[in-house]
Amino acid sequence: MIADAAPMGAIRPGLEFVYEAVGDLGAPMPIGDCHDGVRRIIPILSGTVRGPLLSGRLLGVGADWQVSRPDGVTVADATYAIETEDHVLIQIRNRGLRHGPPDVMDRLNRGEVVDPADYYFRTVPEFVAPTGRYDWLNRSIFLCTGARYERSIHLWVWRVT
């Protein structure tokens, strides 16, 4: 079977672009070696959210609780909030994986600028929005691609249709 081939009757999902976010990050706070890998906390300080379906700002009330597993994969588990342009607060929990060839990840860990196409960074954001204008966020699945820089992060979010 060809990888792109779908069984008869299968519905191929689509993607609808929602927003692009750029976040400023604080210095990593190491927790240290744990049973499942090396853990650290990355504070999310502020940022912007701009897109056709959602715009606003990242509030400085969140963090990414990461674990770097022995197999070289970093597991992201970030909880943070967006305040929309019309002052609605939306909670996000964004979980996913980042990994790549060891030399690429070493460069990224040293704070060098690395082309996001050279490593895998995918997450699944889950939104908690109040009833009303943004309630659609509670009823869909989303995918995110990302790029990590020394003191910032860049995220692109799509809704699965």
Rank of each mutant, 00 (worst) to 15 (best):
T123H: 09
A76T: 08
L58C: 12
E126I: 08
L143Y: 02
I90P: 10
R93E: 08
L137G: 08
C34Y: 06
P13E: 14
F142N: 05
G32C: 02
G51T: 03
D106G: 03
D71N: 15
L45C: 05
D33M: 13
R139M: 03
R50Y: 02
A21H: 04
W158F: 04
P102K: 14
A6K: 13
G47Y: 02
H99G: 11
R93N: 09
I42C: 08
F127W: 02
G26T: 05
I11C: 14
V104T: 09
F17G: 12
A63T: 06
L54E: 02
A21C: 06
V160L: 06
A5C: 00
H99V: 01
I141N: 11
V128S: 15
Y134C: 02
A81T: 14
P52C: 13
M105H: 10
P43H: 08
Y19T: 06
A5Q: 04
D135N: 06
A21D: 05
D135I: 07
M8L: 15
L58H: 03
R133W: 03
E126L: 12
F127R: 15
P102I: 11
A117M: 03
E20K: 09
R139W: 05
E112K: 04
R39M: 06
W136D: 09
D86A: 10
I31T: 12
N109L: 10
H35N: 09
W65H: 13
I11Y: 01
A129C: 04
R93D: 02
E16P: 00
G47K: 10
P101F: 12
V88E: 14
I41W: 08
F127N: 05
G132F: 01
A78N: 07
I41D: 08
I31Y: 08
A78D: 10
M1Y: 11
R69L: 13
S46H: 07
C34L: 12
V75F: 12
R139I: 00
I82F: 14
L54S: 09
P101W: 05
T145P: 01
V157I: 05
G96M: 03
P52S: 12
S68W: 01
A10S: 11
L15D: 03
A3S: 05
S140Y: 00
A6F: 12
Y19L: 11
R12C: 07
A76L: 15
V67F: 03
I2L: 12
L54Y: 07
V157L: 01
D36R: 15
T131K: 09
V160G: 07
G14C: 00
G60N: 07
V128L: 12
R39L: 00
D115F: 00
R95P: 01
T123W: 01
